[in-house]
């Protein structure tokens, strides 16, 4: 219980300091939302009128205070650029990013764990080299390039899908999921590669442990050792990474959503920052913060469930 209290306190403090940081960042970066909406043709009177309408003529500190007091009451304010309540914007975007993230996560775990085990099994064999090259490629290929590659090969050459053909879940759930498949794959590939590398390293490290020698001494074979002894220990070592992956896929992938044209949280964040939409940016940054803090918390719990040596405690 003490643990939960402490975690909640940490969450609240983190949210507050992150919101302050965002506030200072907005202080520093140049750009005026009203001018951005109106473009270069606007008269000075037009800009002033719109600023008045949007409330962006008030000092930023005043805007911040009104946002944070609203936030505490559960009101996230109104988006300056999209002209609707931030909560409504989130309601539309969350299902998209969460679906995309969860599909990607399933792919990452479904491919990453078996491949990681395989990579550990294949140590010293030719298969290991191939897998190593593949993981290196997966990690080092820039994300946007991977997207283009996937679109080009699977979309334009093999015609397995139509790049850009996003269908909203409000229209058709199956077609929505279908249109998320390839973007999810694009998120999954580099993350899977990282996971494979980590699991492999963790497994190999565990294989050098004394308890593995004990198991061999008992007459256990390779498979028995890997699945019966090493895997669980290796998983403990990669749970924080899986937590980070979870946090990153749920935060919304800016690049993937942008390239595939998926209106999720990442794309919204781009829109919010480029248009200097203060309340929206604040809320999205807080969303990401909450995701990260909560996944860290989940990681703690999961590790605690797997590893009996670790107990949640109120003390640090």
């Amino acid at each position: 219980m003490k643990y939960f209290l402490r975690k909640t306190l940490v969450l609240v403090l983190t949210i507050f300091s992150i919101s302050l940081l965002t506030f200072f960042a907005f202080h520093i970066i140049p750009g005026d939302p009203a001018s951005l909406i109106l473009g270069t043709n606007a008269t000075e009177e037009q800009v002033a009128a719109l600023q008045e309408q949007l409330g962006t003529n008030r000092p930023l500190s005043e805007q911040y205070i009104s946002w944070i007091t609203g936030f505490v009451r559960g009101d996230f304010g109104s988006s300056i650029r999209y002209r609707m309540p931030v909560s409504e914007l989130l309601k539309g975007r969350l299902p998209v990013t969460l679906s995309l993230g969860l599909i990607a996560l399933v792919m990452i775990l479904a491919a990453g764990i078996p491949l990681g085990i395989l990579a550990a099994r294949w140590r010293g064999k030719p298969g290991e080299k191939i897998l190593n090259i593949l993981t290196m490629l997966g990690i080092s290929v820039p994300n946007f390039f991977l997207c283009i590659l996937i679109m080009w090969i699977f979309g334009l050459i093999l015609h397995l899908f139509t790049p850009g053909d996003y269908v909203s879940y409000t229209r058709s759930l199956p077609r929505f999921l279908q249109s998320l498949f390839w973007p999810a794959l694009s998120i999954a590939i580099p993350q899977t590669a990282i996971l494979v590398k980590y699991i492999r390293t963790a497994m190999l490290e565990e294989l050098g442990e004394d308890y593995v020698r004990t198991a061999r001494g008992k007459g256990a074979g390779e498979t028995w050792i890997l699945y019966g002894h090493v895997l669980k220990n290796a998983i403990v070592a990669v749970v924080p990474l899986i937590g980070m992956i979870l946090a990153s896929v749920l935060s919304g992938s800016i690049i993937i959503e942008q390239v595939y044209g998926i209106p999720g949280m990442g794309k919204l964040l781009i829109g919010a920052v480029t248009s200097r939409d203060f309340p929206l940016t604040q809320t999205l940054v807080i969303y990401i913060t909450v995701i990260i803090v909560v996944t860290n918390f989940l990681v703690d719990i999961v590790i605690q469930v797997i590893d009996p040596r670790i107990r949640l405690s109120g003390r640090s």
């Binding site: 004394d210 308890y211 061999r216 001494g217 008992k218 007459g219 669980k232 797997i306």
Partner: peptide, 24 residues
């Protein structure tokens, strides 16, 4: 070899802590 190990011939070590699987 695996048949013999643990059944006909077995071994104990200096470090019982690390020689036991911590998660089992």
């Amino acid at each position: 070899r695996r048949e013999i190990n643990g059944k006909d011939m077995s071994i104990i070590y200096q470090e019982p802590m690390t020689s036991l699987n911590p998660l089992m």
